[in-house]
Write a protein that binds this DNA or RNA. Structure first.
Lengths: 152, 152
DNA sequence: TATTACTCTACTAATTCGATAGACTAAGTA
DNA sequence: TACTTAGTCTATCGAATTAGTAGAGTAATA
């Protein structure tokens, strides 16, 4: 399970991705619109900034913006910043390794499966960018409105 | 990341699967061979028993055995017992649901991706049985021995 | 200079996690 | 019957993590 931090981070980033090219967005706006505790969100945005996903501007009219195109930010990258390696088990991680604990990692049938699982997860998360998510969301909203319009 | 409990559980189950059809295996043997703290393993095996994966027999010659064929126990089932739903986020879970927290789950582009990720993970874990893992392991061991033999 | 808005660090309450301890029960065996 | 073996069950504990709060500080703008 992904932590609240991680979930909030992805929601905040999606919020910014939806406003790409527009004026900076304040912490307060994100907090209110995305229903995220303000002081908690501050920390999260700071982490996102340190990780190079967003930039910030102080003072009136300030706020946060994406540091690069939403097409260049994958969900996998962001998840890794907040949750660590995607691997379910350290012996299946590409980055961390060796901290397996199991008696014979080199001939472990389980490890092979953990690696497969990690790969399946990475395949989805690393190939999905925030631009994709923005697009999906607008499709969903269009469909939702259509249904709503129809029901009137 | 999967907890120690979950990792130990899968290792213990693999140990039993490798001895399917043989005499019961004691907690102590599993503990020693798989390098798992004994008293911790007791609890884990109890959980595995309650979940219907293993049976036990007390007294001399007693121990644990698989409750059903290793072909009928998937890694996914076992992981779920110890880690809860496979979904990275509750709004993508088939079992738990509604505890999303996000403002509009019905039109959430992120949720779609979380669901995809859950599906990718489930595809691997639910289709892999402990019989598969036993087989993989013996292939690995055969290969490993072959290399070793060659180097002599 | 007042206001706006991000920055940074410390803290805390609650929960979870990994593990240990110990008393208890059941099944064989001499 | 008594002893031994081996699983059962519950309580506890320390350390780590998590979610969230608090507050003082800095930079930019009007």
């Amino acid at each position: 399970m992904i932590s609240s931090r991680g979930k909030y981070a992805t929601r905040a980033l999606l919020h910014l991705a939806q406003r790409e090219g527009q004026a900076p967005v304040s912490i307060q706006e994100i907090s209110e619109r995305q229903v995220i505790p303000l002081k908690f969100l501050e920390q999260i945005l700071l982490t996102l900034k340190q990780a190079g996903f967003v930039t910030s501007r102080k003072g009136p009219g300030g706020g946060y913006q994406l540091a690069k195109s939403a097409t260049k930010i994958s969900l996998g990258e962001v998840v890794r910043v907040f949750e660590g390696p995607l691997a379910l088990v350290s012996c299946a991680s590409v980055t961390r390794f060796g901290e397996c604990g199991c008696p014979h990692p080199e001939v472990c049938g389980l490890r092979e499966v953990w690696i497969e699982a990690r790969h399946a997860l990475a395949q989805v998360l690393d190939l999905t960018t925030f631009a994709d998510i923005v697009q999906r969301q607008s499709h969903l909203e269009a469909g939702h409105h259509a249904i709503h319009d129809f029901s009137i």
